[in-house]
């Protein structure tokens, strides 16, 4: 099945799932004085791809893998608990579920017959990577393409926030993303491969500052970004 256009659609930052309002932790890192210019933004994106990017992509791929299984709801429930255990910061759990809810809204409108009803999470919402896995499966993407779009989204959103928060030259920021493309491909391949294993063995790459920054950000009175 030709899925190239579908992959581009799901990877597009204009896909209406609220990505524009999230900086992926960049707003807090900028406020902490840790990201100030193109160089530090590049390091931020590299680290984010290797941690949150890898974990998110692996869980999206694992949810995609769970779609055709007989006990899909139970499998998604296991993934939900495993992802919670990899998300130590309550602010980041909330963000993942809010983004999941936003993505679910889009997914239900576009693919009403996809098995979104099997997603765990209740009123708080399902974790974003799990929704993405189901949505990508409904769109007919392969598991690797699913991981690729997920990993891609974790860096492009933050990069775009960098342009808005730091007033960086958009051409230079785009060049950063171009330079990261190879790492993004590798991360996606690793994530898709990890999804073959049991949920407890999925990547759990930690980033202490991501947790710390997220908890600081959520206490601000005025935020430009939701995360």
């Amino acid at each position: 099945m030709p899925t190239s256009s579908m992959l581009l659609l799901l990877a597009d930052g204009r896909f209406p799932a609220g990505a524009h309002a999230h900086s992926g932790g960049l707003e807090a890192a900028v406020a902490a004085g840790r990201v100030t210019d193109l160089g530090t933004l590049g390091e931020f994106l590299r680290g984010r791809l290797a941690t949150a990017g890898l974990v998110g992509a692996a869980f999206a791929a694992a949810a995609h893998r769970a779609v055709p299984t007989a006990d899909r709801a139970a499998e998604l429930g296991r993934l939900d608990a495993e992802l919670d255990a990899r998300t130590a910061a309550p602010a980041l759990r909330t963000v993942s579920r809010r983004q999941g809810r936003a993505l679910l809204r889009a997914g239900r409108a576009i693919w009403p017959y996809a098995p979104f009803g099997d997603l765990p999470g209740g009123a708080a919402g399902p974790h974003q990577p799990l929704v993405f896995g189901l949505l990508a499966a409904a769109a007919g993407l392969s598991r690797t393409e699913t991981a690729l779009a997920a990993a891609h989204g974790t860096v492009t959103g933050a990069a775009s926030a960098g342009v808005r928060l730091l007033g960086l030259d958009p051409y230079h920021v785009q060049a950063l993303l171009i330079a990261l493309a190879g790492a993004c491909d590798t991360t996606a391949a690793d994530a898709a491969r990890a999804a073959d294993g049991p949920p407890e063995e999925l990547p759990a790459a930690a980033a202490p500052l991501a947790d710390i920054h997220a908890e600081a950000h959520v206490t601000w009175e005025v935020r430009l970004f939701a995360s």
């Binding site: 932790g25 890192a29 902490a32 840790r34 990201v35 530090t40 390091e43 931020f44 994106l45 590299r46 680290g47 984010r48 791809l49 290797a50 941690t51 949150a52 608990a81 495993e82 919670d84 255990a85 990899r86 130590a88 790492a183 407890e200 990547p203 759990a204 790459a205 930690a206 980033a207 202490p208 500052l209 991501a210």
Partner: peptide, 25 residues
């Protein structure tokens, strides 16, 4: 019997971005 914590912190020359502002600053 349920997962409570899973974390894997990687540092070193082979680890992209580990000392950067997203991970250890």
């Amino acid at each position: 019997g349920r997962p409570l914590l899973r974390q894997s912190l990687a540092v070193g020359p082979d680890v992209p971005g580990w000392s950067g502002p997203a991970v250890l600053g």
